[in-house]
Simulated assay, not measured.
Amino acid sequence: MNDFSWGQLVNPEFYIKLGGIYLVLFIVFAETGLFAGFFLPGDSLLFLSGIYSKELIREIIYIKSDFLSVFLLSCLISIAGIIGNEIGYWFGKKSGTYLYNKKDTFLFKKKYLFQAKEFYEKHGGRAIILARFLPMLRTFAPIIAGIVQMNKGKYLLYNVLGSTAWSFSLVFAGHYLYNIFLNEFNFDLKRHIETIVLIMVIVTTTPVVAKLLFQKNKDKSQD
């Protein structure tokens, strides 16, 4: 820890080596369960966890099978994500009552709450699933769902689907892509963690930026 630098906080390998599977699961939970978790690594952490799946699972139980190790790790991460989302939804629902009773101010307009509620009624399921794969949005989507009082049963269903798809796709991708690159091309992904993180950030944030720019241009054309 004497060589600690602030840049390590965005490096998922730092968390894996620091706290192992327990810290990985806490971070997955904190990204949506704790309001301040938006700055924590998400997609890149899961991808890298797939690479270190055997080491992580052996902290809990010894499993010889590669597939079972990756499968169990994906299940645990999925559960942590589901619980985190449920906490975020609960927090939003509790604070939503206050916001609906709050008077409009310069920074707060109640009409945006009703617009968000209308959006979640039409596209809430898709929003919850897709937000899982997008940094920042996966932190706030559950909270907003709670604020606008999205149907609890519907929310839980899409929470489970989104968390499962997110965890299994990224963990399995990390594990098997690592083996393919190592065995077929003699290319060790562990030695290029910074590049992997950068690629993951670009891939997951580009759709969000593109959507914002498209919406901004659309609004200008309508003015």
Score class of each variant (00 low, 15 high):
residue 137 L to K: 02
residue 125 G to E: 01
residue 43 D to R: 02
residue 73 L to H: 06
residue 8 Q to W: 08
residue 191 R to D: 14
residue 155 Y to D: 00
residue 142 P to D: 06
residue 190 K to C: 05
residue 20 G to Q: 08
residue 33 G to F: 05
residue 145 A to C: 03
residue 219 D to L: 15
residue 218 K to P: 00
residue 205 T to Y: 14
residue 13 E to Y: 09
residue 30 A to C: 03
residue 59 E to C: 08
residue 222 Q to N: 12
residue 109 K to L: 06
residue 61 I to N: 07
residue 174 G to R: 09
residue 28 V to F: 13
residue 166 W to G: 06
residue 85 N to K: 10
residue 175 H to P: 01
residue 36 A to E: 03
residue 51 I to K: 07
residue 120 Y to N: 05
residue 185 F to L: 15
residue 11 N to D: 08
residue 55 E to F: 09
residue 14 F to L: 13
residue 194 E to I: 02
residue 18 L to R: 11
residue 37 G to F: 11
residue 28 V to S: 13
residue 13 E to C: 06
residue 215 Q to G: 07
residue 195 T to Y: 12
residue 60 I to F: 10
residue 187 F to I: 12
residue 14 F to P: 02
residue 115 Q to N: 12
residue 20 G to E: 09
residue 81 G to I: 05
residue 92 G to V: 00
residue 31 E to W: 03
residue 40 L to W: 13
residue 20 G to S: 09
residue 191 R to K: 15
residue 100 Y to K: 07
residue 215 Q to H: 11
residue 49 S to P: 06
residue 21 I to K: 06
residue 74 S to C: 03
residue 194 E to R: 13
residue 74 S to L: 05
residue 144 I to S: 04
residue 174 G to V: 01
residue 79 I to N: 01
residue 54 K to P: 06
residue 58 R to P: 00
residue 59 E to A: 06
residue 42 G to L: 10
residue 103 K to I: 09
residue 33 G to M: 04
residue 95 S to P: 01
residue 212 L to S: 15
residue 14 F to T: 12
residue 57 I to R: 08
residue 111 K to L: 09
residue 188 D to K: 15
residue 209 V to I: 15
residue 93 K to E: 09
residue 70 V to N: 08
residue 108 F to N: 01
residue 212 L to I: 15
residue 174 G to C: 03
residue 213 L to P: 07
residue 55 E to Q: 14
residue 175 H to Y: 12
residue 202 I to R: 12
residue 87 I to E: 02
residue 212 L to Y: 14
residue 120 Y to C: 13
residue 75 C to V: 10
residue 193 I to P: 01
residue 87 I to A: 11
residue 156 L to A: 11
residue 156 L to T: 10
residue 129 I to Q: 08
residue 181 F to W: 11
residue 62 Y to S: 13
residue 51 I to Y: 06
residue 164 T to V: 13
residue 209 V to C: 11
residue 49 S to E: 04
residue 128 I to C: 01
residue 88 G to Y: 04
residue 220 K to V: 04
residue 103 K to S: 11
residue 182 L to A: 14
residue 101 N to E: 14
residue 129 I to E: 02
residue 126 R to T: 01
residue 141 A to P: 03
residue 84 G to M: 08
residue 16 I to S: 04
residue 166 W to R: 11
residue 142 P to T: 05
residue 134 L to H: 11
residue 192 H to A: 04
residue 40 L to E: 10
residue 189 L to T: 01
residue 199 I to F: 02
residue 82 I to G: 00
residue 99 L to E: 00
residue 121 E to T: 09
residue 46 L to G: 02
residue 18 L to A: 10
residue 197 V to M: 13
residue 158 Y to F: 14
residue 142 P to L: 11
residue 57 I to Y: 12
residue 15 Y to F: 14
residue 41 P to T: 00
residue 179 N to D: 12
residue 122 K to H: 08
residue 132 R to M: 10
residue 75 C to E: 00
residue 112 Y to E: 04
